[in-house]
């Protein structure tokens, strides 16, 4: 798969402070790329460098095969985390202004705005001032302005903040649709369930260094460690428990169950197959629950960052 955006060996210092240290990422075309990391890790700095708001001290950014140029601005749509609109300006005027700054002509901008405003059912806000709108309503307009010029690359920094669940879902669907229509999305968030749901690729930045990246599914595979959640109804509970602990790495587990069973999280050696575990369990009692534990994005995030620190 070809890469839409490649950032190579980016470093950026603010005085003494190292914001980014030799960070490289590759964003495949047509993917949703999760840019993750704790607060202050350097995500926003990297995003600002891609948007040419900040210049890197070292390294280069390549967009669709070409080194980043000022006129690439029109190929990028950026929804910053710290976002807002002119409070005393009318919605329509403002949207037109921002669209024209992105290089659209006035008539183009008008036609596209009409399409989006109808689509999100916000057409009657055109002559309202931003200060008359709620935060969620203003966010919708912000979203429209970001995607209006049909950029190849969309960068969303915490796109769902300020939205109620219904509108968050609406925006999520719009983002997925934009991806299906050919856009590439870089997506920075702390909401791990959205990452789980939407991202194909992720990169994890911690303390200005990239500590993990790749396809989400590959990463999960790498982080899966032969662990199973097990439910067991045994005649002799104490004996079963003792025997299991001898043979495997056993920890108590908690999952929902209607039976009064023993619940364990069991890790087996890499060369052991799950069938062996199953056979052994069957010899101890009746198996009510058997489930391989797949690491969630959340688990991976916490584990990797903690290990790195």
């Amino acid at each position: 798969m070809s890469k839409l955006l490649v950032a190579q060996n980016i470093s950026k210092n603010f005085g003494e402070f190292k914001a980014l240290d030799d960070v490289s990422i590759e964003v495949p075309k047509g993917s949703i790329f999760g840019l993750l990391g704790p607060n202050g890790a350097g995500k926003t700095t990297l995003i600002r460098i891609i948007n040419q708001i900040t210049m890197p001290d070292q390294g280069k950014v390549i967009l669709d095969g070409e080194p980043l140029r000022p006129d690439h601005i029109k190929n990028i749509g950026y929804l910053p985390e710290e976002r807002g609109l002119y409070k005393s300006m009318k919605v329509g005027e403002q949207a037109l202004y921002l669209a024209q700054l992105k290089g659209l002509s006035k008539s183009e901008a008008k036609a596209k705005l009409k399409y989006w405003f109808d689509r999100l059912e916000i057409g009657d806000w055109w002559n309202k001032k931003i200060q008359e709108l709620s935060k969620g309503m203003a966010q919708k307009i912000q979203f429209v302005v970001t995607v209006l010029h049909e950029p190849k690359l969309l960068i969303f920094d915490e796109p769902f903040s300020g939205f109620d669940p219904i509108n968050a879902n609406l925006i999520k669907d719009e983002i997925l649709k934009l991806r299906d229509d050919g856009a590439t999305v870089i997506f920075s968030t702390h909401r791990m369930e959205s990452v789980e749901e939407m991202c194909d690729h992720i990169a994890l930045i911690n303390r200005s260094k990239k500590i993990l990246d790749g396809k989400l599914i590959d990463i999960k595979r790498a982080y899966q460690n032969n662990t199973f959640d097990v439910g067991l109804i045994a005649a002799n509970r104490q004996e079963a428990s003792g025997l299991l602990s001898e043979k495997f790495n056993v920890q108590p587990a908690s999952f929902k169950s209607i039976n009064d069973d023993l619940k364990y999280r069991i890790q087996i050696a890499p060369d052991t197959s799950s069938n062996e575990l199953l056979q052994y369990l069957a010899s101890l009692g009746q198996i009510t629950h058997f489930n391989e534990v797949i690491p969630t994005a959340n688990d991976i995030f916490i584990e990797t960052v903690n290990k790195n620190n």
Binding site: N51, L98, L101
Partner: peptide
């Protein structure tokens, strides 16, 4: 009003 970052992603 936090619009500044939106603007500077379009103009110098």
């Amino acid at each position: 009003s936090r619009i500044i970052e939106v603007i500077v992603s379009s103009v110098k």
